[in-house]
Simulated scan of single mutants.
Amino acid sequence: MAYEAGALEATLAAAAGGDPALFAELRASYLESVARQIDLLSRARCDGNWNLAAMRLKGLAASFHSAELLALAERALEGAPGEPSVIRRLQAYLAEFSAA
């Protein structure tokens, strides 16, 4: 799944109200939050921790209108703790978003 600019960028732009510094700050905050949850997923060894991190990702996706992240969070919720394919896809999403 590749990162596509769209609703997420529009949400950040609307929240920033045309202020480029605020836009950059919101974008960085989003990146940091997603990275933190991916890290927690990668270290989760039980269903509870895995599900909590996946639900937090789902919440971020909903808050920022990111369909891509929402789909990945749902895959995580369907998977087992430590599922490497889910973590790799999330890391790829984050890398692509960071580079965009």
Rank of each mutant, 00 (worst) to 15 (best):
L52S: 08
T11G: 04
F64T: 14
L72D: 04
S63R: 07
W50F: 05
R27I: 05
A61R: 01
N51G: 04
G6Y: 02
E83I: 01
E68G: 10
L41S: 01
S42R: 14
V86C: 07
A99M: 06
G48F: 14
E25H: 09
Y30P: 02
H65T: 10
A62Q: 13
R27S: 10
A13L: 09
A95T: 11
A62K: 10
A35P: 01
A54L: 00
S66N: 12
A76S: 04
A80P: 01
L90R: 03
G18K: 08
A5Q: 14
R88L: 14
E68R: 12
G48L: 15
A73R: 05
L69G: 00
A54C: 03
E4N: 08
F64S: 09
F23N: 04
R27M: 07
L52F: 12
A5S: 14
A62H: 10
D39L: 11
A80L: 07
R56P: 00
R89Q: 15
Q37G: 03
E68P: 02
R45Q: 13
R27L: 10
A54V: 03
S85I: 08
L41V: 01
L22F: 13
R27E: 07
N51W: 00
H65C: 11
F23T: 00
A44P: 06
A13Q: 13
A71T: 11
L70P: 00
S42Q: 13
A44R: 01
L72W: 09
L94H: 05
P81M: 08
L69S: 04
A80V: 11
A67W: 01
Y30C: 09
Y30M: 07
H65M: 11
R75F: 03
Q37W: 06
A35Y: 00
Q37M: 12
S42V: 04
P84L: 08
E9S: 06
S33A: 13
G82D: 02
P81C: 06
A76E: 04
E78S: 13
R36A: 13
F64Q: 10
E32Y: 13
E74Q: 14
R89Y: 07
